[in-house]
């Protein structure tokens, strides 16, 4: 579903992502992890079409994000770590706008279901200024899920959520994966990645340093000495620890 091949992203002379390739199939939940400045956000932004790749190709459901961006974006949903809402639109108006842009026919019914699922019922007519940080995040997620995307990208999805929200968010991500969506979760919360991801991609200095299931990583000859936790594997793989 998500196919990234030889992705390179440069900013001036700085190469943020360097020949990065990976695939995410339907039903997979892939954790994209790496140190600060490793190139995670640049990768995500290239995948969703916010930034153009300097080199390489990205296809979503067979649609090239550069050559056929509209078709590719119809299949996508991107939940940024800092959700941006229009401060003058209510929650329901955000969903109606999103529904129109993504051509969702039964927007009212789907919106109410999503609001119920995300515990936003009763906030339909609230503007973002009347919502907490966590609720704002949930509205962004509701907008993202409204068109039943086939590929979902989450950038630090647990930021600002309360414990119950965290639990629901984890369930939402897993449920979408089980429903057949290709999911990428970028996070520094390694326990989250360990808990919900079916595969892990580690990126460092713009290059892929690992791409395997947690079990495979634990069994990897070069990483086996690190121990059994993802944190230890991560630190070893990214040379964060000798």
């Amino acid at each position: 579903m998500i196919d990234v091949q030889h992705l390179t992203k440069t900013y001036g002379s700085f190469k943020a992502v360097d020949e990065f390739s990976f695939r995410v199939g339907p039903g997979e939940v892939v954790g994209l992890i790496g140190p600060n400045g490793a190139g995670k956000t640049s990768t995500l932004r290239c995948i969703v079409g916010i930034q153009a790749p300097s080199a390489g190709t990205i296809t979503i459901g067979g649609h090239d994000i550069v050559r056929a961006p509209v078709e590719a974006k119809r299949l996508l949903a991107f939940m940024a770590d800092e959700p941006q809402l229009f401060e003058y639109l209510t929650v329901m108006e955000h969903l109606r706008l999103t529904g129109r842009l993504y051509r969702v026919r039964d927007v009212e019914a789907r919106a109410r279901d999503l609001l119920a699922e995300l515990q936003l019922t009763g906030k339909e007519h609230a503007i973002p200024a009347e919502l907490s940080r966590g609720m704002t995040q949930k509205v962004a997620i509701a907008c993202g899920l409204l068109h039943d995307p086939k590929a979902l990208l989450f950038d630090e999805p647990l930021t600002g959520l309360d414990p119950l929200g965290i639990r629901h968010m984890k369930e939402t991500i897993v449920a979408r994966g089980r429903a057949g969506a290709a999911v990428i979760v970028s996070s520094h919360l390694l326990h989250l990645v360990e808990e919900i991801c079916t595969r892990i991609v580690i990126i460092d200095h713009g290059r892929k340093v690992a791409d395997a299931t947690l079990a495979e990583l634990k069994a990897h000859p070069e990483l086996a000495a690190a121990g059994s936790s993802l944190e230890q594997i991560f630190l070893t793989a990214t040379a964060g620890e000798p």
Binding site: R45, G49, P69, V70, E71, K73, L76, F78, A80, L101
Partner: peptide, 9 residues
């Protein structure tokens, strides 16, 4: 960044 995620030319 948000506008560019929309499926709109």
């Amino acid at each position: 960044p948000l506008l560019k995620t929309w499926p709109v030319s």
